[in-house]
Design a protein around this nucleic acid. Structure first.
Lengths: 116, 116
DNA sequence: CTTGATGTGCAACCAAACATTGCAGGAGGA
DNA sequence: TCCTCCTGCAATGTTTGGTTGCACATCAAG
């Protein structure tokens, strides 16, 4: 067991889903089964170029992958990699949750020993 | 039900725990039951001033709260707020997980209708 | 009370990341 | 061909994470 909980986390993957715009892009890509920089930018409050850069980031960590369709470039979510990202989110969450409960128990024990 | 899953998320809270340094700070604060900018900086690869800024960020979203003790300023984790943050992590995780499973089911249904 | 060590806070500065505008080029349809 | 639409590249601005340097406050000796 390690002292620092997040040491096991891949920071690159985390920071990829840490950006709110990229999270919403993933939402849209999942909801619509894929999309292009242009189509995504129509649903988000940023320019197409910003979206394109974010797609490049998501591509680098393999959360999405592109396919040329005619003159447009459609991106789709990599289910397996997103699954890994979700697993990491859950692991941090449960780790903190565990610490909180442990702390609560210690606090209760202290209180009992002081009152008894 | 909304189309964009993360619309319910408080971006400020998320971005507070989105930074890897801040996550490790929370780890340390939980493990040691509190700490100062100086004490935290001894366990992390950044300067005390950087830590102080991060503590200010965490304080703004109420994930930690300070208390003056003599000449030093000790920060402790706000359990309730961290619990909320964990809940948000889990909600995004399960939402994405749900979409993945739904997509898999749709894909299977399509495959069946084409083969049958 | 003065000295020194330690803890904090503020300001200037640097680099990387998110986002913008502007323009050039490639692929399809009338 | 001409027009439209989608993509890609370059220059720029702004925010954020990080650093260095210095000033100020507090506690413990002497």
């Amino acid at each position: 067991m390690s002292t620092t909980v997040t040491a096991v986390i891949d920071d690159e993957l985390w920071s990829a889903i840490g950006d709110p715009t990229r999270r919403r892009m993933l939402d849209l890509l999942l909801a619509e089964g894929g999309g292009t920089a242009t189509s995504l930018s129509e649903h988000l409050p940023v320019t197409r170029q910003a979206i394109a850069k974010h797609l490049a980031v998501l591509d680098r960590v393999h959360l999405v992958h592109p396919s040329a369709e005619g003159r447009e470039k459609r991106y789709r979510v990599d289910d397996a990699q997103l699954g890994r990202a979700v697993a990491q989110l859950n692991s941090v969450g449960t780790a903190w949750d565990g610490r909180l409960q442990r702390i609560r128990k210690i606090a209760e024990a202290i209180q009992r020993s002081q009152n008894g």
